[in-house]
């Protein structure tokens, strides 16, 4: 068994596509029309055959309360790994990304949290001494 896809619920798939590709730097892997929505996945250019991230439409009535409650407590919906958190922080800051947690050490990781503009907080972590 392997994890081939994981998802974030996004308010708007087109807006999410722009943020996750142009700002974060992911590449589109699948973009298949499915009625009103799309099966829209992105991958890291560092691992094009790796786990896909599904930009999943958040139209189910349970999604908005779930997202709202996570954001209220500042909890990220998902987490990505980078080699250098501080460098990514500077890069994303210059692209206008808004952070809710500035670079900080938390046990074995260094991390930040930012707003993906699609209703989610996203964590970036760097494994220290890794």
């Amino acid at each position: 068994m392997r994890i081939y896809v994981t998802s974030v619920f996004v308010d708007d798939q087109s807006k999410a596509l722009d943020f996750y590709t142009r700002i974060l730097g992911f590449k589109v892997k699948n973009d298949v029309p499915l009625g009103e929505y799309r099966w829209l996945t992105v991958v890291s250019p560092e691992a094009p055959e790796g786990t896909e991230l599904l930009l999943e439409p958040g139209e189910h009535p349970a999604v908005q309360p779930y997202k709202t409650a996570l954001v209220e407590d500042g909890i990220p919906a998902t987490s990505f790994q980078v080699d250098d958190v501080d460098a990514e922080y500077d890069r994303l800051l210059s692209l206008g990304v808004s952070f809710t947690v500035e670079p900080m050490d938390a046990g074995p990781v260094r991390m930040v949290v930012f707003d993906d503009t699609c209703g989610n907080l996203i964590q970036l972590i760097e494994m220290k001494g890794g």
Binding site: D73, G74, I75, T100, V101, M104, D105, A106, G107, M111
Partner: peptide, 24 residues
């Protein structure tokens, strides 16, 4: 600080691991 940050700070200090619910 948000709840998430208060939890993260507690991890960072290597203190007793507490659930978010406990911190809440």
């Amino acid at each position: 600080q948000s709840l998430f940050q208060i939890c993260a700070m507690s991890v960072a200090e290597g203190g007793k691991a507490l659930s978010r619910q406990a911190i809440t």
